[in-house]
Design a protein around this nucleic acid. Structure first.
Length: 959
RNA sequence: GCAGGGGUAGCCAAGCUUGGCCAACGGCGCAAGAUUGAGGGUCUUGUCCUUAGUGGUCCGAGGGUUCAAAUCCCUUCCCCUGCACCA
C-alpha cells in the first residue's frame, strides 16, 4: 500500500485523539455503550482478532453519527498463567519464544526486560492499545482502559465475589481437576501452551470395584459399572508386579501407575509392598453386587497404566473379555502353567445382561464373530468395544439377570448401580485421563482432588430462570443464538471459580490462599469501565475502592455523605459516579467470538442478573465468527503470522476494516486471503478516483438522472438504517461501497454532472463510509471543503434527500430497455447502424390499466379482464386483437407478485423518457436512435416490429 | 460426552426467520470491447443451455406440502465448530 495511506491514517488519528472525540462523558443525549469481550493477554494477536474489534468500532462510530452519546471502552484480561509462563520462557531463553516475539516486532532490547510476569502484562497492554486498536483508528475511550491484574480491578472483583457470597451463590465442595504435580492446575486442551503432550485427553470416571480375595481386596476399575451382573471371572496380568496399598484400613491390590495417580485423589493411601500378578492367578475372589466367587485368570490385555491394571470380566458385553476367555479356554498350555482346572475354565459362560436393539443377548460374542477377530491384541477390539458401549448405553435395557434393575434403561441403571455400590462400600470412584498428559515442565498431569474447592452456583434455579427470562428480552445476534442461549443457560452448572498455584489474578476475599480464576473475574466487568477512569486519573485512590463504595455507586446502597466521608472522597464525586452508572448502564452490546457462547456469555449474563438490579441487566449480545484457514499456515511459516501492524502497513487500515465488514456475514468463518484484501484496497482507490472525477466534472444542467441519483441515495440511507438495526455491516458496506459506486458510475455515464447533485451526493456518500473507512472518509470530507470531522457529523438520513419513485422506475425502465437491446445484439451479432424503438400504443396501456385495477381488487381472471375490455367501445372495436392482448395480459399479471404489480403500475412516460435518453443511447450504441409510438402510422417500421410493443416493453428493431 | 452450524452456479459468498421482484446481491476469476504507443490499471459488456429481447434446466441427494420452494415438512449422504478452571 502506498505511503499515502499510512500518512492519512496517522494524520486523522492524531487529530481525533488530540480533539478527544473518543471521550465519553455523561450528557443529555441518549447513550449507547458497547464493548468487545476483552482479549486475554497471552501474546501477540493476529489479524483474525481484529475482525470483532473492528465491528465494535464501526458500529459505535455509526451510533455516534446517529446522535448517540457513545461509550466504547477497552481493556485486557491478564488473569492466568499466560504471562507467567511467557516470562519464564523468556527467562530461559527459549528459542521458539524468542523467534516468535521478534517476528512480531518485539524490539530485541526489550527481551531482557520481559522476564517478569507483570512486565509482560505491561508490555502487551501497550502493544494492544497502540499497535492494534489505535493503529486501526478506534475511537475507544482510552481514559478508561483497565486490565484485570491492576490493583483497582482487583478491588472491584473482590466486591463482586462478596456480592455473590451475599446471594448464597458461592459454594464449597470437593472437586477433581487436572493438575501438574509440580505446577498446579492446568487446562487440558489442545490449544493449551502449558502442555507438552496430551491436550486432547478426556477425563474418565472409573468405578473401582472391590473383590475380596482372601484377606486382600483386588480392585478393578471399570467405565461400565452397570455390567457387574455379567461378571464371570477376574483378570490379572501375569507379567505385572502389582502393589499393595492400604486404603481406609483395607489392603488393596492395584497397579503401580494407578497408585501413583490415585494418591492425588485419596489422601490416606499407604504403600505397603508389592505382589506379582502370578501369585494371584488361580485364586478366587468375591465379585461385588452378585456376591459370587469367581476365578482369577491370566490376561495380557490388562495394562498397568489403564485403570488399576486389574479388570473384572464381563464376556457378554466386553469384547476383550470374551476373546481372552475364549482363547484361554482353548489354551491347555497356559491353563496348565497356572495350574488352572480346564473344566472349571471351560465351564465359564457369558451371562446376558443387556438387551440392545440390533444385537442378540451377547453383543461382545456376536461382534467378535461378525468382525472375525481371533487374537487378543487385535486393534479392532477397541472399535468393537466403542460400538457396543455406545449402542448399549443409549438404546439398551437391563435384562432379567440384572436383579432389581431389570427392564431399566442402561442410561439410568448405570448411575443407580454405581451409587448403590458406593453406598454399600463395594465401590469407589477414581478419575483418570484418557491418555498421558505431560506438563510443559516435563512432569505428568494427574487428576487431583481439591477437597475445599469454591464454586459459583450457576445451577441455582432462580438465577437460571431470571437469566433465561431476561435473555428473551435481549437483542442477541445471530438469531440462532437467541434461541440456543436458553438451552445453554439451563446446561450451565456449578463452576470452579478459584484456584491455587502459578496464577495472576485477584485473591479470593474469603480465603487468601485462593486466587480467582480467569473466567470468573471477567463477567461483570463492563460496569467497571464506569469507575476505572476516575481511578486512572487519580481522582479515586485505591483505598477508596471499598465494598461500601461499590455498593453505593453500583447498587445505590448507603448514604452518599457517609460513604464519601468514610472512603475519603467528595460527595460530589461519589454522586457523579453513581449518576454515570445510572446513565451508561445497562450495557447495550457485548460482542465476542463464538468461543464465548457456552461460557463467557452465559456467565456474563448470570453475574449481572445475580448482582445488579434488573434495570442494569445487559441489553444485547453479538457473536462473531473467525478469520481462519490459511492463517494457521501463515503462522507456522518463517515469519510467523503476519503481525497486525505489518498488515496495516501493507494493505491500509481502511482496506482491512472494509474487508472485515464486507467479506462475509459476521456469523460465518472466513478464510484469510490476501487477494481479497487487495481487492478491497483497490475498491477504496476506485472510490477515491471516482470522487475526484466527480469533482472535476465541468458541470451540467439538472436532468432526469439527477432525480434518479438523489432518490437512490435517499433510499440507500434508509436501507442502511434498516440494516444497522441489526448491526449488519455487510449490507451497510454493500450499499455504501458497491451499490453507490455503481450508481455513481451510471450517473456519470448517463451524462450527469450537476454541481448541486454532486455536492449532495458526496455529502451523503462520504458520511455513509465514515463508520467503516473513517480515515479516507475524513480525507474526502476535507477534500470537498467541509470543516470539522465527518466522524462527528450526523449520519445521512433518508429525509435529507428527496425520494422520487417515478424517477427510479423510469431510469429502471431505461436500463431494462438497454438490457433487451444488448440481448438482441448479442444473439444476432449485428453491429447496429440504426435502432428503432416503438413504445406501446395507448390502447394496450388501457388494457393493462384495467388488468391492474382488477388485480388490485383481487378480481383478476382471464375472462374477467376480457369482459372488462370488451365493455369499452374503443377497445371492443379492435376485436380479436384486443381480446388476445387481454388474455395474455391477464395470464401474465396472474403470475406476478404484488411488488411486481406495483412496479407495472408506475406511470412512466415511456416515449418522453426514451426520447430524452436517445442521445445517450446513440452514444452508447454508436448508431442512430429513433423513438416512435406504435400508434403513429407515419413511423418508419421496415420489419413491422411496432406491433410487438407492450407497456413497459417497447418493441425494438435494429439494423 | 454436551451443545450447535453448514452443503447455493469455476471459486468466495448473500438469500432461507416473514414461500412469489430468484437464473438467484456482491466480489474474484475468465472472455470481449474501449482507453492506454507494451504490461498493469481503469471503464463497459458478457460469463448454466438455448434464443431477435424466447424458452428450458438449476440452489448436496430423494420425496412431500403449495397456484408457486434455494426458502416450509420428511428421509438420506457428506462436511464443520464450540465447550469440559485457555478466555
Amino acid at each position: 500500500m502506498s505511503s499515502w495511506t499510512a500518512e492519512i491514517e496517522a494524520k486523522w488519528q492524531q487529530r481525533w485523539y488530540e480533539a478527544g472525540i473518543f471521550e465519553a462523558n455523561r450528557d443529555d443525549r441518549p447513550k449507547f455503550m458497547m464493548i468487545f469481550a476483552y482479549p486475554g493477554l497471552t501474546g501477540y494477536l493476529h489479524v483474525g482478532h481484529m475482525r470483532g474489534y473492528t465491528y465494535v468500532d464501526a458500529i459505535t462510530r455509526y451510533k455516534r453519527m446517529c446522535g448517540f452519546n457513545v461509550l466504547f471502552p477497552v481493556g485486557t484480561h491478564a488473569t492466568g498463567n499466560g504471562a507467567i509462563s511467557l516470562a519464564k520462557r523468556i527467562r530461559e531463553k527459549d528459542q521458539k519464544t524468542t523467534d516468535y516475539l521478534l517476528a512480531n516486532g518485539c524490539p530485541p532490547e526489550k527481551l531482557a526486560d520481559l522476564t517478569e510476569p507483570q512486565k509482560v502484562v505491561d508490555f502487551f497492554n501497550q502493544v494492544y492499545v497502540n499497535q492494534y486498536w489505535k493503529r486501526f483508528g478506534f475511537l475507544a475511550d482510552w481514559r478508561r482502559f483497565t486490565s484485570t491484574t491492576n490493583p483497582d480491578y482487583g478491588q472491584f472483583i473482590q466486591w463482586q465475589f462478596r456480592k455473590l457470597h451475599d446471594r448464597g451463590l458461592l459454594i464449597q465442595k470437593p472437586y477433581f481437576a487436572p493438575a501438574c504435580v509440580e505446577c498446579g492446575p492446568v487446562a487440558v486442551d489442545a490449544s493449551e501452551t502449558d502442555l507438552s503432550k496430551g491436550g486432547n485427553a478426556e477425563t474418565n470416571e472409573y468405578t473401582l470395584l472391590k473383590f475380596r480375595c482372601g484377606d486382600l481386596f483386588l480392585v478393578a476399575a471399570t467405565l461400565r459399572p452397570e455390567t457387574v451382573y455379567g461378571q464371570t471371572n477376574f483378570w490379572v496380568n501375569p507379567d505385572v508386579e502389582y502393589v499393595k496399598v492400604r486404603r481406609k484400613g483395607e489392603p488393596w491390590v492395584i497397579s503401580r501407575p494407578s497408585y501413583d495417580k490415585m494418591r492425588y485423589q485419596k489422601d490416606d493411601l499407604v504403600l505397603e509392598g508389592t505382589i506379582p500378578g502370578t501369585e494371584l492367578i488361580g485364586k478366587t475372589c468375591v465379585a461385588p453386587v452378585i456376591h459370587r466367587e469367581v476365578p482369577v485368570l491370566p490376561a495380557t490385555f490388562c495394562k498397568p497404566d489403564v485403570g488399576t491394571g486389574l479388570v473384572t470380566s464381563v464376556p457378554s458385553d466386553a469384547p476383550d473379555d470374551w476373546i481372552s476367555l475364549k482363547l484361554l479356554q482353548e489354551d491347555e498350555a497356559t491353563m496348565a502353567r497356572y495350574g488352572l482346572d480346564p473344566a472349571m475354565v471351560r465351564a465359564i459362560e457369558p451371562i446376558p445382561i443387556i438387551e440392545t436393539k440390533g444385537y442378540g443377548p451377547l453383543p461382545a460374542v456376536e461382534m467378535i464373530d461378525k468382525m472375525g477377530i481371533i487374537e487378543a491384541g487385535d486393534p479392532r477390539l477397541d472399535e468393537a468395544k466403542k460400538a457396543i458401549y455406545k449402542d448399549g448405553f443409549h438404546t439398551g435395557r437391563m435384562s432379567s439377570n440384572a436383579g432389581q434393575f431389570s427392564g431399566m434403561k442402561v442410561e439410568e441403571a448405570k448411575e443407580l448401580i454405581k451409587q448403590m455400590m458406593i453406598e454399600s462400600g463395594e465401590a469407589e470412584l477414581f478419575y483418570d485421563l484418557s491418555e498421558e498428559v505431560i506438563c510443559r515442565c516435563g512432569r505428568p498431569v494427574v487428576i487431583r482432588k481439591v477437597p475445599d474447592q469454591w464454586f459459583i452456583d450457576y445451577a441455582n434455579p432462580s438465577l437460571t430462570e431470571d437469566s433465561k427470562r431476561h435473555a428473551k428480552s435481549m437483542q442477541i445476534l445471530p438469531q440462532d443464538y437467541y434461541v440456543n442461549i436458553q438451552g445453554v443457560l439451563d446446561w450451565f452448572r456449578e463452576r470452579a471459580c478459584v484456584r491455587q498455584g502459578n496464577w495472576l489474578g485477584t485473591r479470593f476475599p474469603y480465603d487468601n490462599k485462593w486466587i480467582i480464576e480467569a473466567i470468573s473475574d471477567s463477567t461483570l466487568y463492563p460496569i467497571y469501565y464506569l469507575v476505572s477512569h476516575y481511578y486512572n486519573s487519580g481522582q479515586l485512590p485505591l483505598s477508596s475502592l471499598t465494598e461500601e463504595f461499590f455498593d453505593y455507586v453500583y447498587l445505590g446502597k448507603g448514604d452518599a455523605a457517609q460513604v464519601a466521608a468514610s472512603i475519603g472522597v467528595s460527595v460530589e464525586l461519589l454522586e457523579r459516579i453513581r449518576k454515570d452508572v445510572s446513565y451508561w448502564y445497562p450495557l447495550d452490546i457485548n460482542l465476542g467470538g463464538k468461543e464465548h457462547m457456552t461460557v463467557h456469555f452465559p456467565a456474563f449474563l448470570m453475574n449481572h442478573v445475580a448482582i445488579l438490579p434488573e434495570e442494569l441487566w445487559p441489553r444485547g449480545i453479538f457473536v462473531n465468527w473467525y478469520v481462519t484457514g490459511k492463517l494457521g499456515k501463515i503462522s507456522k511459516s518463517k515469519g510467523g503470522a503476519e503481525p497486525i501492524p505489518d498488515a496495516a502497513e501493507r494493505f491500509g487500515v481502511d482496506a482491512l476494516r472494509l474487508y472485515y465488514a464486507n467479506i462475509a456475514s459476521p456469523f460465518a468463518d472466513v478464510e484469510w486471503d490476501e487477494n481479497a484484501i487487495d481487492n478491497y484496497s483497490s475498491r477504496i482507490d476506485r472510490i477515491l478516483r471516482t470522487v475526484d472525477e466527480l469533482k472535476a466534472l465541468p458541470g451540467a444542467e439538472r436532468q432526469k438522472v439527477d432525480d434518479w441519483l438523489l432518490s437512490r441515495m435517499s433510499n440507500r440511507a434508509l436501507a442502511i438504517a434498516r440494516a444497522m438495526e441489526e448491526y449488519d455491516l455487510r449490507r451497510t458496506s454493500n450499499e455504501a461501497y458497491f451499490e453507490t459506486l455503481s450508481d455513481v458510475r451510471w450517473y456519470m455515464r448517463r451524462g450527469g454532472g450537476n454541481a448541486h447533485t454532486i455536492s449532495h451526493l458526496l455529502r451523503s456518500w462520504i458520511r455513509m463510509m465514515a463508520p467503516i473507512t473513517p480515515h479516507v472518509a475524513e480525507e474526502m470530507w476535507a477534500g470537498i471543503g467541509e470543516q470539522g470531522f465527518v466522524s462527528t457529523t450526523p449520519f445521512p438520513t433518508s429525509d435529507e434527500l428527496p425520494t422520487d419513485a417515478l424517477a427510479e422506475a423510469s431510469e429502471n425502465y431505461l436500463k431494462e430497455v438497454i438490457t433487451d437491446i444488448n440481448e438482441i445484439l448479442k444473439v444476432t451479432g449485428i453491429a447496429p447502424r440504426r435502432l428503432y424503438l416503438y413504445v406501446s400504443p395507448k390502447w394496450k396501456r388501457d388494457v393493462l390499466e384495467l388488468g391492474l385495477e382488477l388485480a388490485r381488487s383481487k378480481q383478476l381472471s382471464v375472462p374477467g379482464l376480457t369482459k372488462a375490455v370488451m365493455a369499452k367501445d374503443d377497445l371492443k372495436r379492435r376485436g380479436k386483437e384486443s381480446a388476445d392482448f387481454a388474455r395474455k395480459t391477464a395470464e401474465d399479471l396472474l403470475k406476478r407478485s404484488e411488488v411486481e404489480l406495483s412496479k407495472l403500475a408506475m406511470d412512466v412516460d415511456e416515449k418522453a423518457y426514451l426520447q430524452d435518453a436517445a442521445v445517450f443511447l446513440a452514444r452508447e450504441l454508436g448508431c442512430e436512435v429513433g423513438v416512435y409510438s406504435a400508434d403513429d402510422p407515419t413511423a418508419p417500421d421496415p420489419q413491422k416490429k411496432a406491433r410487438a410493443a407492450q407497456p413497459h416493453r417497447p418493441a425494438i428493431y435494429v439494423e
